[in-house]
Amino acid sequence: MTGTATLETQSLNMSFGSVPIINDVTFTLRPGERRALIGPNGAGKTTFVNLLTGRLHPSSGSVLLNGHDITEVGEARRIRMGIGRTFQITSLFPKLTVRENVFLAVAECEGIASRLFRSAFHHGAQVARVDELVHRVGLGDVANTQAQFLPYGRQRLLEIAIALALRPKILLLDEPAAGIPTAESHVILDIIATLPKEIAVLLIDHDMDLVFRFAQQISVLVQGSILVEGAPRDIAADPRVREVYLGDSKHGLPAAA
């Protein structure tokens, strides 16, 4: 599952009942891109990610992967096509250990998950990858602890390990740093830094410090529509963006960098 991928949406719309959530969004994420998606609470960021991964279906418009229309492709198949994601609200296998959590993802990714007759832990290469991933996100000391007993911040890291285990070509990180103490949020950047360059990463976060250190490009989503896209310094200087964030000091934009 190597190679690059471009993920696009064309005039994507999504509404719950008569309430529009996503409004005519046309968006492109190119190979190797480090893009952030920001916007106030309720702007539809998570809904947008769910539309990209196929968890939700758009009311109209389309999602394209490398130019192929995948709007009708199911979630599991999109994941196998290389679209990996983490969840804003941690979603793990609570009674399985950290290693077992990661193993499930590695097994699916490497196509061994439907093997019936050989013990999971006799798959040496895959187990080695599990241990490598567990260490990469800094969970080596709790590798054999059940996920439900991890503190929340470390559950977030396990969430990322699972996403990385899928060898995504496109990685969608939905508020990965939420719940991780600010002093440690750089761990997320360190992990992203270890990814192959050709992987496209879309980061959603409210921590503007993190966003501006990470992003080469930023898209601003407001009330379900893309307000503006551009390089971080342009975004920080954009009066419309400043207006949206005005008075929201805890998410305050840094001065134009």
Binding site: T53, R55, E75, A76, R77, I79, R80, R85, F87, S91, L92, F93, P94, K95, L96, E100, F103, L104, A105, A107, E108, C109, I112, A113, S114, R115, L116, F117, R118, S119, A120, F121, H123, I162, A165, L166
Partner: peptide, 27 residues
């Protein structure tokens, strides 16, 4: 043998959190 195989583990995964299994590409 079955419950210790990767298949057996994926069943536990589905039991624990089926939505998450879909999101790691499991049919």
């Amino acid at each position: 043998i079955l419950i210790n195989s990767p298949f057996g583990w994926s069943l536990r995964g589905i039991r624990e959190n089926d939505a998450r299994m879909v999101a790691i590409g499991c049919p």
